[in-house]
Write a protein that binds this DNA or RNA. Sequence first.
RNA 1: GUGGGUAUAGCUCAGUUUGGUCAGAGCGCCAGGUUGUGGCCCUGGAGGCCGUGGGUUCAAGUCCCAUUACCCACCCCA
Length: 413
Amino acid sequence: MPAVTAIRGFKDILPAEASLWRIVEETARDVVRRFDFVELRPPIMEKTELFQRSIGQSTDIVEKEMYTMEDRGGEKITLRPEATAGLVRALLEHNLHEGGRAVKLFCLGQMFRYERPQKGRQRQFHQLDVEVFNDPSPLADAETIFLLYVFLSELGLPSLSIVLNSLGCRECRPAYRQSLIDHLSSRKERLCGDCQRRLEQNPLRTLDCKVPSCQAEAQDAPVLASFLCPDCRAHFEAVKSALASLGLSYELDERLVRGLDYYTRTTFEVRSGDLGAQNAVAGGGRYDGLCRELGGPDLPGIGFAVGLERLILLLSQTAPPVSDGPDYYVAILCPEAQAPAFKLIHQLRKKGLAVAADWTPGGLKSRLRRADKSGAAKVVMIGPDELASGQVLIRDLVAKEQETRPIDRPDLF
RNA sequence: GUGGGUAUAGCUCAGUUUGGUCAGAGCGCCAGGUUGUGGCCCUGGAGGCCGUGGGUUCAAGUCCCAUUACCCACCCCA
C-alpha cells in the first residue's frame, strides 16, 4: 500500500475493467444518437443554490450528502450529485429552448454524493443522464423509457424489470398526500421510527419502507391512482398504451416514489435482483415544475439517470472481460536487435498498427510468453539470425503460420 | 450517522478456536528443463517487520484495548 491511498468511495477503474466501461459508454452514445439526443457537458461543479432549489432542501441528498465547499472568493459551490439540475441551468442560461421546440439532451459523467460506500454504491459514481425538455406529450415519456430499455437490452441485460407509476401533479398530489397523512397518523405508533419522521417530511416515502409492520400499514392505505386528476390520468394511460404499442412489458407499482422533490406524473425505475440491496439500476420521471422552480419559463421535462457502476457490476457477473490485443508483438531476442526493432516498431505504429514490445532483450521462450499474454495476433521475431539475413520472422499465433519480411520494409506489414 | 464482518506474498486465501519450528498454499512473476519456437508438465528462485499503535506474557498473525481502511446491511439513492 502506498503512503497515500485513494479517497474512500473513489475507485480506480483498472485497465481490465476499463474495456467494459468503454463498451457501456459506446453503446450509450450509439443509442441516444439513434433517438436524436445531443450531448451537453455541464461543469462538474455548480453553485450550491442550484441543487438546493432543484433537488429540494429537505431531501437527504441536499441535507447530508453533498460535497459542498467555499471557493477562495467565498462562493458556496458543490460537486454535482446528479446531472439534471446542471442541464436545466445550461438550457435556461443559453436559451436552448427558444422557438418552443423540444430539446433532447444527454450527459455522461461522474457524480458525487457523500454516502457510506457499499455494494453498487460509491461516493464518486457515473451516470448516463437523458432528458427531454419542453415536450409535454406522453409520447416523450414513452420514448424516453423505451430508449432506456433499448440501451439495457443492447448491453445484454434483458432480465431487468421496468417499474412504472404516476405521482400526479401539483393539482392532484396534495389531496392524496393529505389523505395518506390522515390514514397513517391514526396508526402512527405502529410505524417504525423512520416512517414516523417521514410522515412529517415526505409521507409518500413510507410507501416503500422495508419494515414489515410499515408495509402492512401501507397495504390498506389510499392509493395514488384513485386521486389522479383527469389530465394526469389521461397522460398516464397514454404513456402505457404507447409503451404497449412497442411491445414493452413493465410492472405497475403504486409504491414507486422518488427521493427527489421535483418529480411529477410519470416515474419509473429499473431494478435488478442481482445487486444486493442497491437494486435500482436506473430511475427517472417527469419534472414539469423544475424549470420554473429554477427561475425559468414553465417548461415541462422528462428524463432518467442510469447508474453505470451497477451496470458494470451486472455485466461483469455475466460477460467475461474483453481484451483486445495489439496487431503485433515484437520479440527482441538479442541486444543487437534493439535498435533496428525500435525503428521498425515506430514505423509500424506511425503507419497505424498497434504494436507491443519489451525493450529489454530476452530469451525466445520468455518473449513468446509475453506475446501470448499481450493478446497480440502476430509475433515479429528479431534475433541474430534475422539480423544476419535482414528478414524478420512473422508468426501468426492463431493460424500458426510463418512468413518473413525485410526488416527495412515496414510498408509490407 | 448506526450495526455486523474482514485485514497474512502482486492476487485468492489457509494458519487465530486450544499463545511456543506458522511465515504457508494455489495462481501470477523470474530463471532453467521438457516440448515441433510459447500455452501442458517438471525443477529452482524472488517476494510478507501477518493493517497501524498500545497492552497481557518468559513468549503474540494467534489473547485484550484502541485506531484506520475495506466489505456488507440500515438510512437514502442510480
